[in-house]
Design a protein around this nucleic acid. Structure first.
Lengths: 335, 335
DNA sequence: TCCCGCTAAGTCACCGCTGACGTAACGTTG
DNA sequence: CAACGTTACGTCAGCGGTGACTTAGCGGGA
């Protein structure tokens, strides 16, 4: 059995409460007593029982994180960066994955709330806002990231996805491309926004594209390469053929490039590509991939700080933070 | 505030204990009462408070997982697969990352134990066994995965890393290579075992290689590509130059291949490569990468089953499960 | 009729910790 | 010297749930 406050109290002939006070840094304790307690705690390697503390105090010093897919580098890196910030502030992180399944997501949220967390951080895969409202019953504050709900006034951190679309598309235009297609997502706010950015950039440059140049697909995170591959096959059938494609993310860009090469075309000479996410492996790909980097680590840092703030002051007015993305040019979009 | 047993009990004019009994499926309750309780639970959307339950019963229905690096595809996929098994058994998974830092690892273990878990699953980054013994104080059973400690009798699931080395090296020999080098890891059991497998295969085929053909490095998981790149630069200086390299993992193989191509050599014609892990992107790389697949998802599944078993029966004699790896041949080692 | 055993409840103490409050001992102050 | 603060502890109740035990009520067998 683990050491309890009771054990320390007994050893030192003081009350449990006194020991608890020392633990919490309450200055309502004599200096000598405090030293004796601290010494004994160290000797016995005392670790507070968080379940008991959580029950009694309502605070757990723990942040819950729900991501749609752990294997996706974006979420993994986000979690890593977030974890660092929390660790530095002596808060624990507990992580759950929804596997892009709304039902699983709900279950995971409940598990986390049931186990007691001070703040919930989530990139929701709910298509509709409604299912999300259940959280409203709870007093636990939550912070959305990456994926926002348009009409929900909530705390949010994410990248400026409109700008992602603009940066990518403008870059392709600057490379002299005019028949620019988009392989995009559905049902998530980043999808909408990147598409909007793409349209903005085209409008800005007075470039018109046919509707068929926009192909939308689901499930870009787990099997995005396949989705990208298939979407690209559709685009390749069109006349005139696109000469550039802005892909929703890097994985789909990889699939799309494969479809292009398989069709005997050259990248970037015949068709230029740009993705989003700037994955670790971008440099090692068959054609090194241009990408819009949305500063994942920075996002995790900011999210961590907001989460800490929310844990300390749960009743804040909703705040939205959008990070500026940057362009990383490699061969796939190159001159 | 969340719904409590007390609320349901009050509404129905029964005692809290009766409600608790229904919750736990105790058959010591009348059928009509049971139905009323269940109905009300559903209506109020009751969720048990795990902290209270954990405190009172000692069971939390939660498995803790500590991995060295979330961003590494192997651990991410393992976690995903594990999560599926646990979810199906109505157990929660909470995940922590040690960032390959032994101190962080200890902290995370403590956090998890303090928060209450029934089983701890861990791929430890402790170089020595000693620091790990602290766990011995606790009654929480633990299950090592991927990385074993040679002289610790513990539950373990991992891949048969000796066989990984053998498969990879034999394959290179079969391709007619004789000057086979190895870029490997240090201080972890998979590193030792893969190296041993490599040696076994060479001995078996009566192929002798100079000691300089074996280059060992640290930190293969986070920045393995750079480690692989640098290690390969050393190998390229040797005379005679190796004509094949078995790399510790895919990331290091990617770096090594880059070094080779940068030096103006051809892959696989001049030097053949094989990695391990069979990452998702292997097909999309500049040179599609041959790899030994250690069946990550299957590993997660087995680990999940063992964890459930351990949670139910904590006092079992230690058991080791080794999964058989398989060879996936692509261009980098091709004829 | 009485006792036994079964069913379907209820009582009680406790898990480890904390918040709110109580209090003894010892100055201080006017 | 009585009234009042301070300091340094202690007491008590309770967080939400559970395990172990008790009890009321009822039917059946000898």
């Amino acid at each position: 059995m683990a050491i309890r406050l009771k054990d320390i109290a007994r050893d030192l002939n003081v009350s449990v409460v006194t020991v608890s006070k020392v633990l919490r840094g309450n200055r309502d304790v004599g200096d000598e007593t405090r030293q004796r307690v601290l010494k004994r705690m160290k000797e016995l390697n005392y670790r507070p029982n968080m379940m008991a503390r959580g029950l009694a105090s309502g605070r757990t010093y723990t942040v819950g994180l729900v991501v749609p897919d752990l294997v996706h580098p974006f979420f993994a890196e986000f979690a890593k960066s977030l974890g660092g910030v929390l660790r530095a502030a002596n808060q624990a992180l507990i992580l759950a994955s929804s596997e892009e399944d709304p039902a699983v997501e709900m279950q995971e949220i409940r598990t986390l709330l049931g186990r007691g967390i001070d703040v919930l951080l989530i990139a929701s895969c709910q298509a509709k806002l409604r299912n999300f409202y259940e959280l409203g019953d709870e007093k636990t504050p939550y912070l959305l990231f990456d994926r926002n709900f348009p009409y929900l006034a909530a705390h949010f951190v994410g990248s400026d996805d409109v700008m992602v679309g603009e940066l990518a598309t403008r870059h392709l235009i600057e490379q002299g491309r005019r028949r620019i297609a988009h392989i995009g997502g559905q049902n998530t706010s980043p999808s909408f926004d990147r598409l909007r950015g793409y349209r903005n950039a085209l409008a800005e440059a007075r470039v018109a594209v046919p509707d068929e140049y926009i192909v939308l697909r689901d499930r870009f995170d787990e099997t995005g390469d396949i989705a990208g591959f298939q979407a690209m096959q559709e685009l390749l059938k069109l006349t005139p053929r696109p000469d550039a494609v802005f892909c929703y993310n890097d994985l789909s860009a990889m699939g799309a490039i494969k479809a292009t090469l398989d069709a005997g075309l050259r990248v970037p000479e015949d068709i230029a590509f740009i993705g989003c996410g700037n994955i670790r492996y971008a440099d090692y790909l068959r054609v090194p991939l241009s990408s819009v980097d949305h500063g994942t680590a920075e996002l995790g840092r900011v999210a961590g700080e907001m989460a800490l703030d929310l844990a300390a002051h749960p009743d804040q007015p909703p705040r939205s933070v959008l990070m500026k993305p940057t362009l990383v040019v490699r061969q796939s979009s190159g001159g």
